[in-house]
């Protein structure tokens, strides 16, 4: 997301006042974070809003040791939100989704055809990875499993899963960049 320059000083001054910090976090990151999270929750808006709220609360709780550099803060918020989504999805387990399929009006996050194209490009890029790299991405992130769980299922040490994931994700990003879907 584009990180506004003026944010540095706003976060700086927010350092002393947690209430102000929460407000600033919501103002600056709330909307983009919600857009991101909605993609991960399959457009379940209620769930996505809960995730954003919890993410901001955690940011506030960690305010003392949080990096105020906006790009890094954004990455931190994304990671926290992702963990909350993964936890939530695991709790829901394999139960059929309780959400009704959203109306066409409610769905566009972003435009459906753009998203479908993106999905095709990413799926293709995954196929271009080595089997080892694709396997760890599939068995961790795409199945909501932690490194430890994936290691057990795959029968390889956790360190190996992390290392393959590192090189796999870097390779994936390289391919996606080449094909114009990652910056």
């Amino acid at each position: 997301m584009p990180v506004p320059r003026h944010l540095d000083s706003r976060l700086e001054s927010a350092e002393t006042d947690d209430d102000v910090l929460v407000e600033v976090l919501y103002q600056e990151f709330g909307a983009p974070l919600l857009r991101h999270v909605r993609k991960a929750t399959g457009n379940d808006l209620q769930w996505a809003e809960d995730v954003v709220q919890e993410t901001i609360v955690r940011a506030w709780r960690n305010a003392g040791r949080l990096h105020r550099e906006p790009g890094l803060l954004w990455a931190w918020l994304l990671t926290v939100a992702r963990r909350i989504v993964i936890d939530g999805r695991r709790r829901r387990g394999a139960r059929p989704q309780e959400v009704e399929p959203a109306d066409a009006d409610a769905v566009s996050v972003p435009d459906g055809s753009e998203r479908a194209l993106e999905a095709m490009i990413v799926a293709d890029a995954l196929l271009d990875l080595s089997e080892e790299h694709r396997e760890v991405i599939e068995h961790t992130y795409l199945r909501d499993r932690t490194i430890g769980e994936a290691a057990e299922i795959l029968g390889i040490p956790p360190g190996t899963v992390k290392s393959r994931l590192y090189y796999g994700i870097r390779a994936l990003r390289g391919i996606l960049k080449e094909r114009g879907v990652a910056s």
Partner: peptide, 28 residues
């Protein structure tokens, strides 16, 4: 918090999960 190398790399990688979500959603 203390490794600038990792901070830079995290920024670089931070959009990848969102792109992977496209595949996940497409499947479901």
């Amino acid at each position: 918090m203390s490794c600038e190398e990792c901070q830079a790399e995290l920024r670089e990688l931070s959009e990848v999960p969102g792109l992977l979500d496209a595949v996940r959603q497409d499947r479901s």
